[in-house]
Simulated scan of single mutants.
Amino acid sequence: MSAVPAGPPVPSPDAGPVATGVRPRSAVGLAVALTALFVLFIGGSAYAVYADWTTWALMERLLSDPGAVGGAELGRGERLIGLAASVQSKALIVTCVVFVVWFRRVRTNARVFAQAADALASGVAVGARFAAPAKLWLPSRIAATTWLSSRPLDTDDGSRRFPLTLVNVWWGAFVAARVLGWCGGMAYSLAQSPGAVRHAATAMLAGDVLDIVAAVLAALFVIRLTAMQRTRSAQSPAVAAVRP
C-alpha cells in the first residue's frame, strides 16, 4: 500500500491561542455509535469477500472445465455479488454519514484547543471543493491537523506517543480500497468472458479486504482521537471551565 502523499506542514497542537466563547461538546456518544457501525460495515465487507471468492472460484472452475459449472451456479454467483454490493454500499453510506457528524464535532472541538491550527484545516476543506484530485489526500491533512490539535498538553514526547502513522495508514487503506473497488466493479460490469470476470473478482476481493483493514483502522482513529480530546479538555483550564 502506498503512503498518503505528503501535504503541507501540519501546525503544532499549541499553535495559536485557545479559543474562547466556544463550548466543546462531547464526541463520546457519536464515537460509540460509529464504532458499532464500523463493526456492521466490517461484517458487510466480510460477506463481500465471500461473494468475491465464490465468483473467482466459479470462474476458475469454468476455465478449467466448462462443463463443470452449471447455469444455476453461475446465476447464484451473480446474485451473491449483487446482494453483497447492496449490503456493503448501504452500510458504507450510513457509516459515512455518522462519521461526518462525528468528524465535524471533533474539528469544532479542535478549534478550542488550537485555533490557528484549525484555521488551516478549514482552509484546506474549502480548497478541496475546487481541486478534485486533491480530495484523495486533503481530508487526511484535515484529520492530521485535528489530531495534532487534540494531543494532550505537557507531553514532550507527544510526537512519539501520538504519531500520525494511524491517520496516514488509515487514509491510505481507505483510498486504495475505494480505487480497487471501483476498478473491480467497473471491470465486472464490462466483463464478457470467464477470464475477465475472474480478474474483476480478484480486484474486488482485494478492495474488500482493504475495506476491512481501513474500517478497523478508522475505528481505532475514532476511539483514539475521542479519548485524546477528553484528556485535553480536562488538562486545559480554559476548556475545563466550559466543559459540559
Results as ranks from 00 to 15, higher is better:
residue 130 F to Y: 12
residue 215 A to P: 05
residue 55 T to Y: 04
residue 141 R to G: 08
residue 36 A to S: 08
residue 60 E to T: 15
residue 114 A to S: 15
residue 132 A to S: 11
residue 216 V to I: 12
residue 68 A to R: 06
residue 43 G to K: 14
residue 99 F to D: 07
residue 82 G to Q: 11
residue 125 A to L: 12
residue 156 D to V: 12
residue 226 T to L: 10
residue 211 D to F: 15
residue 211 D to N: 14
residue 56 W to P: 01
residue 156 D to Y: 08
residue 240 A to L: 12
residue 220 L to G: 06
residue 115 Q to H: 15
residue 80 L to P: 08
residue 221 F to S: 03
residue 105 R to I: 08
residue 204 M to A: 02
residue 75 G to Y: 12
residue 3 A to Q: 10
residue 241 A to P: 07
residue 75 G to A: 10
residue 155 T to P: 07
residue 9 P to K: 11
residue 234 A to H: 13
residue 55 T to M: 14
residue 130 F to K: 05
residue 239 V to F: 04
residue 169 V to R: 12
residue 158 G to S: 11
residue 109 N to W: 07
residue 84 A to Q: 04
residue 175 V to R: 08
residue 9 P to M: 08
residue 67 G to M: 08
residue 76 R to M: 11
residue 129 R to Y: 14
residue 213 V to W: 01
residue 55 T to N: 14
residue 3 A to K: 10
residue 197 V to P: 02
residue 65 D to F: 01
residue 57 A to F: 03
residue 141 R to H: 10
residue 47 Y to D: 08
residue 47 Y to G: 10
residue 230 R to M: 11
residue 112 V to Q: 13
residue 93 I to N: 09
residue 187 A to E: 02
residue 151 R to Y: 04
residue 179 V to Q: 00
residue 172 G to L: 03
residue 8 P to S: 11
residue 215 A to N: 02
residue 142 I to V: 14
residue 188 Y to V: 02
residue 52 D to N: 04
residue 21 G to T: 01
residue 216 V to R: 00
residue 74 L to W: 01
residue 94 V to Q: 02
residue 208 D to C: 07
residue 207 G to E: 00
residue 127 G to F: 01
residue 71 G to W: 13
residue 120 L to D: 06
residue 47 Y to C: 03
residue 184 G to P: 00
residue 68 A to M: 04
residue 16 G to H: 09
residue 103 F to L: 13
residue 26 S to T: 05
residue 170 W to A: 09
residue 27 A to D: 03
residue 238 A to L: 15
residue 16 G to Q: 06
residue 101 V to Y: 11
residue 132 A to N: 12
residue 28 V to A: 14
residue 53 W to F: 07
residue 244 P to I: 05
residue 59 M to P: 00
residue 236 S to H: 09
residue 23 R to Y: 05
residue 124 V to C: 08
residue 226 T to D: 14
residue 233 S to F: 10
residue 168 N to F: 07
residue 59 M to C: 08
residue 223 I to F: 05
residue 49 V to F: 06
